[in-house]
Nucleic acid binder design. Structure first.
Length: 182
DNA sequence: TACAAGATTGTCT
DNA sequence: GACAATCTTGTAG
């Protein structure tokens, strides 16, 4: 089993916690950018009214119904792109939303893409823009790239906080948001 | 066929 | 702190 498959071999809440501290990297036009994941949210498909997959399969969320280890990208408010890691067996549309990270490679390129040098990757839409991820990358195999997730370097001694989820209107009471403190 | 709502962000006051 | 930008889905007629 690969490193990534080991990380994904858990329930959706466990995977959301496992992904903290992992390296998320993209390579486009020979330029590599990468962040350490520090913030995730779990979405449990059919059991979760806040999930896009709650009402069943559509053209948009098709990837979530596939096998784990693929990238699900969706458009938010018609403007931004948000990245999810597909979790669970084929037909079980669980996913982990990647909300934030810390730049660890290609910082200059990230600043160029974002057009600013503050608040680079502290939100799902910002994270996608910083790594140049768009709907074209929907369905990417995260083991092969150009969007990849690899284990480590981890979050060191930082503690993991669980808080209610943000920016949604349903099932907001579920503490399924995971943050590496600091 | 039409319309309201949404897992957001940037800008202006 | 409030609001605009912009598009896909779901639901109603």
């Amino acid at each position: 089993m690969s490193q990534l498959e080991s990380l994904l071999d858990d329930d959706v809440l466990g995977v959301a916690a496992n992904l903290l501290g992992c390296r998320l990297e993209t390579e486009f036009d020979g330029i590599t950018t990468a962040v350490t994941i520090t913030e995730t949210e779990a979405y449990a498909g059919p059991d979760d009214p806040a999930s896009h997959a709650y009402r069943g399969l559509t053209d948009r969320n098709r990837v979530m119904f596939g096998p784990a280890g693929f990238l699900y990208v969706y458009r938010s408010y018609g403007i931004h792109w948000c990245m999810n890691v597909v979790v669970g067996e084929p037909g079980v549309p669980h996913a982990v939303l990647l909300r934030g990270g810390e730049p660890v490679a290609g910082r200059a390129e990230i600043i160029r893409r974002r057009g600013r040098d503050t608040d680079l990757t502290n939100g799902p839409g910002k994270l996608s823009q910083a790594l140049a991820v768009t709907g074209d990358d929907n369905g990417t195999d995260l083991r092969l790239g150009p969007v990849r997730i690899v284990a480590g370097p981890g979050i060191g001694d930082r503690t993991v906080e669980r808080t209610p989820r943000i920016g949604i209107s349903k099932a907001v009471e579920r503490p399924w948001r995971f943050i590496a403190a600091g």
